[in-house]
Simulated scan of single mutants.
Amino acid sequence: MTWHWVDPVAGAVQAARVLREGGVLAVFWHAADLPPTLRAAMHELYSGALAGTPGAAMYAPGRTAADGYEVMLDRAGSGLEEAGGFAGPERWRYAWQRRYGVDEWLDQVPTSGGFARLPEAVQHAVLDGVRSVLSHDEAVVDGTFTVDHTTVLLAARRRF
Results as ranks from 00 to 15, higher is better:
R93K: 12
L80E: 08
V27A: 11
V130A: 10
S132E: 14
A60H: 09
V122T: 15
T150Y: 01
V141L: 10
F28H: 12
D103W: 00
H4D: 08
A49N: 03
A60N: 09
A26E: 15
G48N: 08
R93I: 00
V102G: 05
A121N: 06
G11P: 06
L134V: 07
R131D: 14
L153F: 07
L106T: 03
D107T: 05
L38T: 14
Y100C: 03
Q123P: 04
S112G: 10
L25A: 13
P119T: 13
A121K: 09
L38Y: 08
L127V: 12
V71F: 09
F28L: 11
D67G: 14
Y100K: 07
E104Y: 02
M1N: 10
R39F: 01
L73I: 13
L134M: 09
H149Q: 14
M72P: 00
V126Q: 04
A51V: 12
E82G: 00
G113R: 04
Y59Q: 12
S47T: 14
H4A: 13
R20G: 15
P54Y: 06
D103A: 11
A95V: 14
M1D: 11
D67I: 05
P61F: 02
A116N: 00
R158N: 06
D103Q: 12
G143P: 13
A87Y: 13
H136F: 04
G23P: 11
A32N: 10
A60M: 06
F28V: 00
P54W: 03
V13M: 13
H43D: 01
E21N: 13
T151R: 10
Y100Q: 05
D137R: 06
R157S: 08
A41L: 00
A139H: 07
L25M: 08
V27N: 03
L45V: 09
V6P: 04
P89M: 06
D107G: 06
Y46V: 06
W92I: 00
A66P: 01
P8V: 10
A56G: 11
Y46L: 12
H30T: 14
Y100N: 06
M58E: 12
D137F: 08
T144D: 05
E82T: 15
E21R: 15
D67Y: 05
V152I: 03
W105T: 07
L153Y: 05
V18A: 01
A83N: 11
R159C: 02
G129V: 05
A139L: 03
R157E: 08
T146Q: 05
R39S: 13
F115M: 09
A12Q: 04
V140M: 02
G55W: 04
G11R: 10
F160Q: 13
E81I: 13
A66W: 03
E120Y: 11
V27E: 11
A87R: 15
L25C: 10
Q14G: 13
W5L: 07
R157G: 01
F115Q: 05
E120A: 15
A156H: 11
E81C: 01
M58P: 00
A40C: 08
L50D: 02
H4M: 10
T2L: 11
E21Q: 15
G23S: 11
G114I: 05
T64P: 01
P36Y: 07
D107V: 01
A56Q: 06
R157N: 01
Y59M: 14
G23D: 07
H30L: 04
M72C: 03
W29S: 13
R63K: 02
V13G: 03
V122A: 14
